[in-house]
Design a protein around this nucleic acid. Structure first.
Lengths: 340, 340
DNA sequence: GTCGTCCGTGAATACGTATGCACGTATTCG
DNA sequence: CGAATACGTGCATACGTATTCACGGACGAC
């Protein structure tokens, strides 16, 4: 049978309330009683029942995270692994746990969120790059339910943590310009993706500053899509001499197409992408990539959420932006024959 | 304020007990009362409080999963993404959720498990490839705590689901033999890893059947380690003409080293690995890989665990083995000049 | 008509913890 | 030295749900 505070109380000859106080670290408990209680607790191997605590404290110590599941696309995206790993690491330090669900599509995603919070299963939520006009956001705000957005929430004001995507794209583009590239293009993701649009913005800024003509193409996410989408781009007369690509997976696709077309990296095509994942090492010479500092991004998100849950933060929506840094590799080196 | 069964009861002019019965689908409730209750529930947007349910039912409807975190190695391993995605998909169908933690090392992993189950936070556990003499296993069995092992538990009898790793290695090796390779080697993982050892077994069996001499090398996990470990192997006089490699990431590393040494795939070196991840498409020509049927593996694990939790299964330990299938790609094609 | 059986229902209780309240004792201050 | 204050402790209760128990009425059998 399970050991409860009642049992501890009986053995230590105190009341159950006192046991509870000892566990809560209440200072006003006589030392000898505290010692007795602590000794019995240690002997009996007692651990509080989180289910009862949750009911009484009105806290489950669980944080919810719901991920999209685009046709098994989650399967190979290392981004999610990094996300989850960091989240749990930060949460455990504050004695929280992660309750994870994966929804097939966006609407069922909303359903899962609703389920998690209305049944009081979780104390707060982390939303990853919600769509621009996401109903959830307004619902959550109306309910005053604790949550934090990872990404650019765009519309109303709320707690959020984001990469500095404009800066990242500026750094990437500037890097190519400095290495002598001029006909620089941008291969982004589907329309409506905030990350992509922010990076396009940064790209256009730098191009404009140098009097260069921006050219933007789009592609679906993933290796295969980007590989296919980049073929007409690279296989044309006025092909760009460099590309800024939305993420490493897509850059791998571009690299393969370039190789198939006989284009050398970085000689015939400069390449810079984002995320700095280990994939970048897989291509000979490596792919230059902007490290977005995911660890920090996620850490800050969790810390902020916990602060909100524990009401340690005023209900003033705050937006935090995480810096980034270029990781230079072979794919963007100065092409031969270009003077410094 | 939150809506409770008490509120529903008042509005529908019945007792709270009756509301509970209606929600539980109890047949012996008068129809008109049931209708009144259901109408009020719908109007008031009531949802039960899982915290109270957990305390009363002695069930949290949470399943625990703890992953190892080998120095950020989790970060890029798509295996974990697939694992998590499948687990949550199956669980949600049975109204369970996943409680996920990531532990830095093996001992803290034990601690996290202990925490999850002793505080009654989860109803059951999924253990992924536990080490051979894992203390957890015995503890859990002694406590009669519901759990299921993914992988080969080796020692005592318990509920487990595993890939057919011996068969997978047989298929891979046989495939290479049939394509004319003879000096076939095996590049495995660190000692003590059950998956690796089982695959070595299958490899040795086929080699013996054909009167060929087996040669086994080991390497740490990951792209970089395998790349380094394969260098002396491939850069020697009696290098193998084909390698069976423990997983796709490691195979990518081998492929890079081969490329750097000027060895052509599959002409100079045949390559077969396991998992059939999307990485296999990244190399020109593709890497032949054995698909281990992860989805099914995970699905069966979850189903079994839920059955155990809900006592729908007798406490007779069962071991289920999932089949696998070869996905042939360029890296293992019949070398030129080899007659059929 | 009486007795027994069955069924629907509400009252009461339990799950294990946290906490407001009250009581008794020890301490301090006028 | 009496009154006021502070402190440590136990009692009782609440959190929201599920379930047992008992009660009252309906119904059937004789």
């Amino acid at each position: 049978m399970r050991v409860t505070q009642q049992d501890i109380a009986r053995l230590a000859d105190v009341s159950q309330a006192t046991v509870s106080r000892v566990l809560a670290g209440d200072a006003r408990v006589e030392d000898d009683k505290r010692d007795r209680v602590l000794r019995v607790i240690k002997q009996s191997n007692y651990r509080p029942d989180v289910r009862a605590q949750a009911l009484r404290r009105r806290r489950t110590s669980l944080v919810g995270l719901v991920l999209k599941r685009p046709d098994g696309g989650l399967k190979d995206d290392p981004f999610y692994s990094a996300l989850i790993s960091e989240i749990t690491a930060v949460l455990s330090k504050s004695h929280y746990h992660l309750c994870l669900d994966v929804a097939a599509d966006s609407s069922s995603q909303t359903g899962v969120y609703d389920e998690l919070l209305r049944t009081r299963r979780v104390d707060g939520l982390i939303l990853v790059e919600p769509e621009t006009e996401d109903q959830r956001l307004h619902k959550l705000q109306d309910d005053r339910f604790p949550f934090v957005v990872i990404g650019n929430p765009r519309t109303s004001v709320m707690h959020s943590v984001d990469n500095d995507n404009v800066l990242a794209a500026r750094i990437a583009t500037q890097h190519l310009v400095e290495n002598g590239y001029r006909r620089i293009g941008f291969l982004g993701g589907p329309a409506g993706v905030a990350v992509s649009e922010d990076r396009v913005t940064g790209y256009r800024m730098v191009m404009a500053e140098h009097g260069l003509t921006p050219r933007v193409w789009t592609s679906d996410f993933g290796f295969a899509s980007a590989s296919a989408a980049s073929r007409p781009v690279l296989d044309s007369a006025d092909r760009p001499d460099a590309l800024v690509v939305l993420d490493d997976f897509m850059a791998m696709g571009v690299a393969r197409t370039a190789r198939q077309l006989g284009l050398a990296l970085p000689g015939d095509l400069g390449l810079v992408s984002f995320n700095d994942s280990s994939l970048c090492e897989l291509v000979d010479g490596g792919i230059t990539s902007v490290n977005m500092n995911f660890e920090q991004l996620v850490q800050e998100s969790c810390r902020k959420l916990i602060q909100i849950i524990e009401s340690k933060v005023p209900p003033v929506p705050s937006r935090l932006v995480i810096p980034c840094a270029l990781m230079s590799r072979g794919s963007s080196r100065r092409p031969l024959g270009v003077a410094r």
